[in-house]
Simulated assay, not measured.
Amino acid sequence: MAQTKLNVVEDTVENQIAELRSQISSLSKSVSARAGTLSNEASEFVDEASGRLQRAAQTAAQTVKAQGHNVVEAVKENPGTATSVLTVVGALGFALGYFVATAANEQKSSSIYRWR
């Protein structure tokens, strides 16, 4: 009698293990199919984004090229004005750099005494 109950328990456990293996196999197939679908969707998204990025880069390059051409033409037509503008911009840049460096130097020297 004890042997019979033991056989019944073994059969029940074996059946449950077989059922669990079947469920695991089914879940594995389902996950694999879903991963394949997601992979395809991601690949399509990357391809579409790459195309859009390439078109945007081409458009930007064409715009920069056209604006550069316009600047060159304006400089050719008005060399004196272009020279004056570049001189003023250079002088302003120099003055701004000088004032920033002076302010930084003053701040550095005053901070030495502040911490002592």
Rank of each mutant, 00 (worst) to 15 (best):
A42D: 00
N40V: 12
S32R: 07
V13A: 02
A18W: 04
E14M: 06
A35S: 04
V9G: 01
T12R: 12
S30P: 08
S39E: 03
L6A: 14
G36P: 07
I17S: 01
L20A: 15
A42W: 06
D11F: 08
I17H: 00
I24F: 01
Q23A: 11
V8E: 13
G36L: 04
S32I: 00
L38S: 11
L27Y: 02
L27G: 00
S32N: 12
K29Q: 06
S22G: 15
L38I: 08
S39W: 05
N15E: 00
Q23G: 04
S28M: 07
L20M: 15
S25M: 15
N15A: 02
A33S: 10
E14D: 07
K5N: 12
Q16I: 07
L20P: 05
F45V: 10
I17L: 12
N7H: 03
E19Q: 00
S43W: 05
K5F: 10
L27C: 00
F45P: 02
E19W: 05
L6R: 07
T12A: 14
F45K: 02
S22E: 13
L20H: 13
E41P: 02
S26V: 08
T12C: 09
F45L: 11
V13M: 04
Q16S: 03
V9A: 15
E14R: 03
R34N: 06
V8F: 06
S26N: 08
S43L: 00
A42E: 09
E10V: 15
N7L: 09
T12K: 04
E10W: 11
V31P: 01
S30T: 10
Q23C: 02
A33Q: 06
V31L: 14
T12D: 13
S22L: 12
V31I: 15
N15C: 06
D11T: 11
T12G: 09
S28I: 03
R34W: 09
Q16N: 07
A35Q: 09
N40P: 11
S22N: 14
V13K: 03
F45W: 03
N40F: 09
I24A: 01
V9R: 13
R21N: 15
N15D: 10
S28V: 07
K5G: 12
E19M: 01
I24E: 09
S30E: 10
A33I: 04
R34A: 13
K29L: 11
T12N: 06
T37P: 07
V9C: 13
S22A: 14
A42T: 10
A33E: 00
N15P: 03
T12Y: 12
V13H: 01
V31S: 14
Q16P: 02
A18K: 15
S28Y: 07
S26P: 06
L27Q: 01
V13C: 01
E10R: 10
R21K: 14
F45I: 11
E14V: 08
A18L: 15
R34I: 03
V13L: 02
S43N: 05
E14N: 01
A35P: 05
E14A: 00
A33R: 05
G36C: 08
K5S: 13
E44Y: 03
D11Y: 01
K29S: 09
S25I: 15
A42P: 01
S25Y: 14
L20F: 13
L38T: 01
N15Q: 08
E41G: 08
V9Y: 12
T37Y: 12
E41L: 10
S25F: 15
V31K: 10
L38Q: 00
I17V: 14
A18Q: 13
V31E: 02
R21P: 07
L38C: 08
T37D: 14
L27M: 03
F45T: 12
E10K: 13
